[in-house]
Design a protein around this nucleic acid. Structure first.
Lengths: 223, 223, 223, 223
DNA sequence: AATGAATGAGCGTTCATTCAT
DNA sequence: TATGAATGAACGCTCATTCAT
């Protein structure tokens, strides 16, 4: 099976003002990413970032006017890199929708076991509750993710409605993402990831294939 | 269907020293909880907590020697309250394992839509990556949660092994918890919670009932 | 040779208001003394004193309106106890001025090796530079001390003037007190105290006996 | 007679990190010294130091990471300046040991009447009882001081043993230092300093010249 | 006689930010 | 580009003190 990994971030400065040399620009963001992973958002300070890339704190403001601007650029770049990874994975996945499903599940489950993903996403989730900016980019990422499942579901089972596809896709994405807390980096069930993959392939495949039109909504009246 | 909600926290002081009058003691913790929800962990400062309960910051150290002690008491009380809620729900759930399954799923899915749960758990997940204390209590909570599913699974399908029950229980818990980020308070899919409940009842039930012994592990070799 | 030791402090409340029961009153001061010795003036806090005598800090203000009042009472009692000790020593010393000299030297040199004296007097000296109150009581103590030497010198060598006796007495007292820093409790030369005593007996005795009238002042013109 | 005074402190940053511009660095230390003299150790706060040199407290931590680091640098510089002064005095003192003795006595007695020395040394003595760092540097200073007397004594009276020289030197140093409390800046006997000098020259000179070998130790058995 | 509860002032320290160089 | 130097705000925390009980 193809190996998917989230590539190194490629930071692109905002359109507006940052015609700064890319070298230092990316260096700062990479250092910030490292600090975010190593210390958590609560210790993501300019001094700490500066130390990480051998600068003094005052020089960071040459690249980013404020700390908030830096953080938004960082999180945008981080989230954007996940967009890119998913898209690249889908491009490689060929025509067989069953294989595409397995590949996408594999990509996500393998990725959540990396320290980077395990440590960054809970921070994003927490931030998204208090920052409209973070909420926006996180939701956008998950929309992309869900849409890939949506197209796969459509190929695998063309008879179910868009609304039901949406719920099924959501269900799959939430299940996989939720596993971050249980089987991510340093988590108790990381060692069972092979079994988790198996049950995911099997169950989500069956769920999609066996779903009859109206079954999701129809069940509603029964509840 | 029975309504389950996480009750108001009942803070009990540590055995050791805090025989302070419960009034102020609980007041501080309740205020801290409110600040944690409203502002996030990053703004959970003593001054902010003090303002929330009409005190001055210096008086908080009368109840808690250090901020860390306060935070550990707070998080322990919060997590403990979820323990209590789950246990109470299971006590009420009667004998029918199918009903127990539905009740537990309902409890969790309804709870994650509350502001409190939606906002606090991502903070706990983020903290657990950098704080051994938080990691410990979060893992303990999820172990409890998973064990309830474990006993339900055992009743519904006695033929599958303990190892497989564990994975299936984990799978269900992760799926439901993962939904926090997608259908929790203020999240895009909160309005679809009825459909999410339906698909959860239906397919987790089928998963458990239809699982044949060895199917989870057996699939491993096929992967 | 007679053994001299500074007795336990006998705290007597100020004439004015403190008709408080003596028990608690003395307990507080004794605790304060212990803290002063163990932690130094910089850590002589009401909380620390309260802990030392099993009280809460707020109760100390029942005995002393302010911390300053407590400290003044403490230091006054401490210094007063040294007055008493010296006086008692002189009363016991009999008629022979040579013996009295030796006894007084012994008293002082043995006392400065106690933890209490070694630790408290430098604090008094430091405080006396910034507190008129401490300056007053410290100077009064040393005046008493010096006057005892003065009367001994007068007996041993009646021919020298009052002015010269004063300087000689001062010289002896300063020498002995200065030894606190070098041969006091925990100091490098404590183990040589027997030799220090010998040289003190011998040469202060010679100094007094051999001094010719006008020798101290006369030397002035030569300088 | 030559005039000896302790020169202005020349602060040299620690070898390790403090390559800060010397200007601000020394400014802070000088301000700290002034506060220590004017207010005493108990009021040596960062805010007070900052006020003394026209800074805000937060800027002090630019030069010294912690208050403790500042204080150790300060006390080390202070004590080191006394080392330097004594050594310079001995270099100037020529060959005649009698003159050297008088010069060293003069240096010390004049120095202890300065506000700086009178106010700082009691603080050092008090601190040395609770701080290993201060104890170390104070003891080192006094060892240096005593060794100068030791070499003078050896020249003036070659027949007495090293052990006895050590005790005699200690005796002289303790006597002179002890005078700080009685004839230092603002003390009752400061105005009699000329007489104190005379008696010191005379008596310590005689003590050294007239001492017969074994007399210090021999006296021990007689006691 | 003692405590619980609270407060205002001040502590050392960290932080993002500014600005001249 | 980068640093040195500075600042105001806020942080967790300690302190002496007050006051009702």
């Amino acid at each position: 099976m193809a190996k998917f990994t989230v590539p190194d971030l490629k930071f692109t400065p905002r359109d507006g003002g940052n015609a700064r040399g890319h070298e230092g620009f990316e260096m700062v963001l990479k250092a910030a990413l490292q600090v975010l992973i190593d210390e958590g958002y609560k210790d993501l300070t300019l001094r700490r970032i500066a130390a990480e890339c051998g600068m003094k704190a005052s020089n960071i403001t040459y690249y980013f006017k404020t700390k908030n601007e830096l953080i938004e650029a960082l999180l945008e770049a981080v989230v954007s890199s996940y967009h890119g990874t998913i898209e690249a994975a889908m491009d490689q996945a060929g025509d067989d929708p069953e294989l595409k499903l397995e590949n996408l599940i594999t990509l996500i489950l393998e990725d959540i076991t990396t320290k980077k993903t395990t440590f960054i996403f809970p921070e994003l989730w927490a931030l998204s509750n208090h920052s409209p900016f973070v909420k926006k980019i996180v939701n956008a990422l998950y929309k992309t993710e869900r849409l890939f499942f949506d197209s796969i579901i459509k190929e695998m089972n063309p008879h179910i409605s868009a609304q039901e596809r949406e719920i099924v896709g959501l269900f799959i994405v939430a299940s996989l993402e939720g596993m971050t807390v249980f089987a991510g980096y340093g988590k108790p069930y990381k060692k069972h990831m092979p079994l988790i993959k198996n049950i995911s392939y099997k169950f989500f495949g069956e769920l999609i294939r066996n779903l009859r039109p109206g079954e999701v909504e129809g069940a509603l009246s029964a509840a």
